[in-house]
Simulated assay, not measured.
Amino acid sequence: MKPKNLSHIRQLNKKNVLMALWENGPISRADLSRLTKLHKSTISSLMNELIDEGLVVELGEGRSKIGRKPTLLHLNKDFPLFIAIDIKVRDTFIALYDLSAARKKITKFNNSNLLTRPEKYVERLHKTLMDFLETKEYDSIKAIGVSVQGMTNHSDGKVLFAPNMGWKNVPLGTMLKKYFDNDMEILIDNDANLALLAEKWRGSVLRKDDKSAVFLSVNEGVGSGIMIEGKLYRGVTSRAGEFGHTTISLDGPLCHCGNTGCLERFASVITLIDNCFDGECREKDIIKALSVTKELYLKGDKKAHQALHNEAKYLGVGIANIINAIDPSVVIVGGYIRVVWELIENHVIEEVRRRLAIRTPESVRIVGSSFQGLENLEGAAILAVSTVIPTQG
């Protein structure tokens, strides 16, 4: 076997070992050998290398019924570190994560007046990031993962179209790289894809046999992430999953995308809030506005009931279309809509049952997200970690 092939195999073995540690650590060398099916001598050699690189640390002794107690190994929680960024229409969240994708700290800033000028926005983002990080933390950053509400090209970091943010063909990855060293890896993906990635690795609703799943993200806009055979599906041009811009009414209202009658215009949380308050909601914070909507509903307010009834109906229509197109085992609903999901869940499921053409409703689960927010940020962290551990596979 050629040396080049041997080197490639060793790198694959290292990634497999890191993945095993990511999922099962702390763990002994013997258990790693059993999990990865690699020889004990190979595990020992790889561990020595990973410890020297600072990626793995020895934690101490584990339990053993007989004989010598094994030394437990785990991922280093201090090196390397990763930045996750979640760019929403009104706010940007920034968080610091370790190699196990555990969050260490978080901050946010309002970006409402900056998105029309992407260069100024990136300048503000970088300044906030520098103020957020200590020098020691910055020096340990390996990669940055970014979540964006819109169509993105995962391969080059360009935001192709984010209508609710007013962005079109914005080279976000290139713009961010200007502020960092050349070896800093910056990965960008849309929010729904990353929410689904978070559900896969850190959520509680996906089952081991869920090889096909859809995450429906309902925020200011509506988008979806698709997983097929356990892997994210982005499509040929990175535009897969834009169900929010499928037409459900030929004569419907104009959408930010330029089309008319898009699902997003009927089922976004902005439409829900506008319907509840006749477009005159005084509360500008979306989560607070949805919380007020929920309170009004529970008090029997007729407008709140009608607004949530319409939301359930159109979400049901959209989800039925998704099921007919993708045939997933589960549809996960998340985003800001989680604030009121418990009020409309049964109504959404009933609407889906009415509209499924072929498939029996019982064969697909429709559930709320495991997360009460921040799923995009969690997914962005896991995306960044994928530069070291194959978390996208």
Rank of each mutant, 00 (worst) to 15 (best):
E134P: 15
V122M: 13
L96S: 03
K105C: 02
Y121M: 09
E123L: 06
T92A: 01
E119L: 12
K127G: 15
R124A: 08
R90W: 01
Y121A: 08
D131T: 05
L115M: 13
I94Y: 01
D98Y: 03
A102G: 14
Y121E: 10
L96P: 13
N111S: 08
K104D: 03
P118S: 05
L114N: 08
L115F: 09
L99H: 03
K105P: 11
K127I: 12
L125W: 04
T135W: 07
V89G: 00
L115N: 08
L96W: 01
E134W: 04
L96A: 01
T135Y: 09
I106G: 09
F132A: 10
K108D: 07
L129Q: 14
R124M: 11
A101G: 08
N111G: 09
D91G: 02
Y97W: 02
L115E: 11
R117P: 13
D91W: 00
I106K: 07
L125S: 09
V89S: 10
S112E: 14
L115P: 13
L96D: 03
N113P: 11
K127F: 09
H126R: 06
K104E: 05
I94L: 05
T135V: 13
T128Q: 15
L129W: 10
P118V: 01
A95R: 00
R103T: 05
K108L: 07
H126C: 13
N111A: 08
K105R: 04
I106N: 10
P118Q: 03
R103Y: 00
K108M: 08
H126M: 10
A101V: 02
A101F: 00
K105M: 01
A102L: 03
T116Q: 14
K105L: 01
K108C: 06
K104C: 02
T107D: 15
L133H: 08
L99Q: 12
K108T: 04
R90D: 12
S112Q: 10
N110T: 12
N111L: 05
Y121R: 11
L99F: 01
A95V: 01
K108R: 11
F132W: 06
V89K: 12
E134V: 12
T107P: 14
L115I: 10
S100E: 06
R103S: 09
E134R: 14
K108V: 00
F93K: 07
F109T: 00
L133Y: 06
A95N: 04
L114F: 05
N110C: 05
F93A: 05
R90A: 09
A101T: 01
E123H: 07
A95L: 04
M130W: 10
